[in-house]
């Protein structure tokens, strides 16, 4: 790692899709491999780094900023598993204020505090609420912040829809120096059709799938213990999956500008998959089909 700034990576995904779990496990795996890692939770729920630090309280950047005019790095960070520096941007309670502006303000403060210069990380992972509902949520992928973004998705249509929205945002910002897409992380792979569906969506959008994370009881158990899989069950198969994902992100620095599907295209694509899944469930055998 010669780059003093480190690799800044934004991980997006629909709420509840397993984005924070995936990000935390990638952070843990990178830390385990000897890298210095910072994970920044960019979600008003501020629970991105919980399983990296055993569920302990961590004051958010914005709460601290509200309470005190002078903020120090120590006030807003905690050292978690493997030395991962955990930071939560925080934000307003649901229904008031502007969470988007919050992310903007928090990221700005981290730069003002020279967190990255002082901690000298190899990797900075931003865990961002993935529907990119407004400009604020796109801050991590704008020029000068993260250089690569990954999107976590399951095979649920709404997750794919959110991923497609992120593609639109990247498509907008990448040409002017914003982040490009590293790839798709397929999560919660369980049903037979999950993997081919995500593969097909990715190929339509012209983006690579960098890893497949199967649905696993080990993840749920580790979370209940307030830990990542890497920490709680280091020898499990699932830990291997996250390590492979982390090394893929580490080794491969390729990125693309995605071609998001427009509204009618996405609907049409989804309908085809609806038909395919129905036929598979009702026993219709298609030639050369994997499901």
């Amino acid at each position: 790692m010669n780059d003093k700034r480190g690799k800044h990576i934004a991980i997006y995904g629909k709420g509840g899709i397993g984005k924070s779990t995936t990000t935390s496990n990638i952070s843990a795996a990178l830390a385990e491999a000897g890298y210095r890692v910072i994970q920044v939770g960019c979600d008003p729920k501020s629970d991105s780094t919980t399983i990296l630090r055993g569920g302990n309280d961590l004051p958010t950047v914005l709460d601290t900023l509200r309470e005190q005019s002078k903020v120090r790095i120590e006030d807003i960070s905690a050292v978690g598993f493997g030395g991962v520096l955990c930071i939560e941007a925080g934000g307003p309670v649901p229904g008031v204020g502007c969470a988007g502006r919050g992310i903007n303000a928090a990221v700005e403060l981290l730069h003002d505090l020279k967190v990255f210069e002082e901690h000298k990380p190899d990797f900075v992972l931003y865990d961002v609420l993935g529907d990119v509902v407004c400009g604020g949520f796109a801050v991590p992928i704008r020029d000068g912040i993260a250089e690569r973004a990954f999107v976590v998705t399951s095979s649920d249509f709404m997750a794919v829809f959110a991923a497609n929205n992120l593609f639109k945002a990247i498509n907008k910002y990448a040409p002017s120096g914003g982040a490009r897409l590293g790839g798709v992380i397929a999560n919660s792979i369980q049903a037979n059709y999950s993997r081919p569906l995500i593969d097909d969506f990715a190929s339509h959008a012209g983006v690579p799938v960098v890893g497949y994370v199967p649905r696993s009881m080990v993840v749920a158990q580790s979370e209940l213990y307030g830990k990542t899989v890497i920490e709680a069950y280091p020898d499990s198969e699932q830990a291997g999956v996250y390590r492979k994902l982390a090394s893929c992100i580490d080794a491969n620095s390729e990125s693309v500008i995605p071609r998001p599907l427009n509204g009618p295209e996405l609907k049409k694509w989804a309908r085809t998959w609806g038909d395919r899944i129905f036929q598979a469930e009702s026993g219709v055998v298609q030639h050369m089909e994997s499901i």
């Binding site: 914005l62 900023l65 509200r66 307003p92 008031v96 204020g97 502006r101 919050g102 303000a105």
Partner: peptide, 10 residues
């Protein structure tokens, strides 16, 4: 100021 924008200014 900014904190009222982020957390709501009511």
């Amino acid at each position: 100021s900014e904190k009222h924008v982020v957390f709501g200014g009511s």
